[in-house]
C-alpha cells in the first residue's frame, strides 16, 4: 500500500510537530509520524528506535528517522513507557513512507498521563494547521 496523497485518518490524535497517536484501551497508545512529516523528509532510509522499557516525555524527542540528506527528530505526543518498538523497520524503513499509520508505526507506549490526549489535535484541526502553515 502506498499513500500518494495527503491523508490524515480521523481515528488518530495529532501533535503539531507532525506526530500521531492511536489510543488503545485506557492507557496504551501507538505513535508514528504523519503523512506530512514523511513527505517533507523524503524517502526514509533509517529508523533508530529507542529501547523498550525507556520512557518518553510529551513534546520531547524519543527517536530519529533519516532520509538520505536529512535527519528528523521524532516527538512524543504523550508521555509513557515504551513497551514495544517496530523492529521490522530496521529492514524496511520505507514502510514509514508507504504506510505511515500502519506498518510504519514507530513505538507502542504505556501511557503515564492518558489525560494528555486532551491537548492533542483531531484530524480536522491538524489539517487546518497544515493549511495555515
Amino acid at each position: 500500500m502506498t499513500l500518494p496523497d495527503a491523508n490524515y485518518p480521523d481515528d488518530l490524535l495529532y501533535h503539531d510537530q507532525h506526530d500521531w497517536a492511536r489510543l488503545e484501551g485506557d492507557d496504551h497508545a501507538v505513535f508514528g509520524i504523519t503523512w506530512y512529516a514523511q513527505d517533507s523528509l523524503g524517502e526514509v532510509v533509517f529508523y533508530d528506535p529507542p529501547e523498550v522499557g525507556g520512557t518518553v516525555d510529551k513534546d520531547a524527542t524519543y527517536a530519529e528517522v533519516e532520509s538520505v540528506k536529512a535527519v528528523s527528530d521524532v516527538i512524543a505526543p504523550m508521555s509513557g513507557e515504551i513497551v514495544e518498538v517496530n523492529d521490522a523497520l530496521e529492514d524496511t524503513p520505507e514502510k514509514v513512507n508507504e504506510d505511515p499509520y500502519g506498518e510504519g508505526w514507530l513505538v507502542k507506549v504505556r501511557l503515564t498521563a492518558p489525560e494528555e490526549a486532551g491537548a492533542l489535535l483531531d484530524a480536522g484541526e491538524y489539517r487546518k494547521l497544515l493549511e495555515n502553515a
Binding site: 532510509v45 533509517f46 533519516e66 532520509s67 538520505v68 540528506k69 536529512a70 535527519v71
Partner: peptide
Amino acid sequence: LQTREQHIRREK
C-alpha cells in the same frame, strides 16, 4: 550514510 556527517547533522 551522509546523515552521520556535519553538513547534515551539525551539532549531532
